[in-house]
Design a protein around this nucleic acid. Structure first.
Lengths: 157, 157
DNA sequence: TCTTGACGTGTTATGATATTACATACTAGA
DNA sequence: TCTAGTATGTAATATCATAACACGTCAAGA
């Protein structure tokens, strides 16, 4: 079973990701400021996708600014840096579980518990590139988002 | 090259789709009312994705209601009936080019000219199902949207 | 024929998501 | 220390979407 769906030491997996993020940012000369860092933590703490206004609410409760751009800017930064992804279908954001590794993401969204996981996407992307190439279309970026049931919720349903 | 990207007899391709839509609706006992029909025409006339408010603007100019639900209801109906698709990435809608044939869609969106085409998706979907199954996840619906350059715009760029 | 219920449309109001523009403050490097 | 670039705070507004209710039409059945 995928780590995201398994019971796991959550604080540990968050800590790891955070450490990796800091290393990456240092390497690139990008700044993981307090707001940005806090937003990343919020995303990491839940394996679900959070809306910009969810994030904003928490930020503002913690003394950061309380206007939408505060949340959107931090989220946009994280997405640009590959530390988070935007889930189009949900108008929401998740922490990236494979920051640093170049990867185009495919997301598995559980419609019961809202957990979001990243699936290995290489074969999917290859199939898409092929299908597109046959029409003469060159794919630059793809969003692949699947809605369904995660292993934990299949039993429940 | 894919028909969508090729110079083609547009009024003819629209007429075909409209005829097919009417046949389908009759068969199902669903009603393709004037608003709904007009919205479908609008989507067919452009091979691009139209936002709900774009559609609304035209409707209202033609004497239909001028409030958002008028457009959203017609669009939702068309999507439910498989006559149109929603493009998550663009918050917009396109006419379906394969109404009646059961199909999960993959969309190719040209970032230069905004044309949207549907690509054959079976292999892509199979790869996605496989990747998901390895994590124990069951895919019910998937949105696959690719951003890139269509054949016509590759030369220009 | 009248009634009734389902459906479609119109309209008001509001909610949810996202951006522009500008002011202020911090930070790194010359 | 100065300065240029970057980051943050805030107000205002744009864009996308839905809830709730009123009215009209039409067909099925009493």
């Amino acid at each position: 079973m995928h780590p995201t769906f398994e019971h796991h030491d959550h604080s540990h997996c968050c800590g790891d990701s955070l450490t990796r993020a800091e290393a990456l940012m240092a390497e690139r000369g990008a700044r993981l400021t307090p707001v940005r860092r806090r937003v990343l933590e919020l995303l990491l703490e839940s394996h679900r996708a959070l809306g910009a206004y969810d994030v904003l609410e928490r930020l503002s409760a913690e003394g950061f600014g309380n206007q939408p751009p505060v949340a959107y800017r931090a989220l946009d930064f994280l997405v640009e840096q590959g530390l988070a992804h935007r889930i189009q279908r949900l108008n929401a954001f998740t922490a990236c579980m494979h920051a640093g590794e170049a990867h185009a993401p495919a997301f598995l969204i559980c419609r019961a518990c809202d957990t979001v996981a990243e699936a290995p996407v290489a074969p999917v992307r290859a199939a898409l590139d092929t299908a597109a190439a046959e029409l003469g279309f060159v794919v630059e970026r793809a969003s692949i988002e699947a809605l369904g049931l995660c292993p934990n919720c299949q039993g429940a349903a």
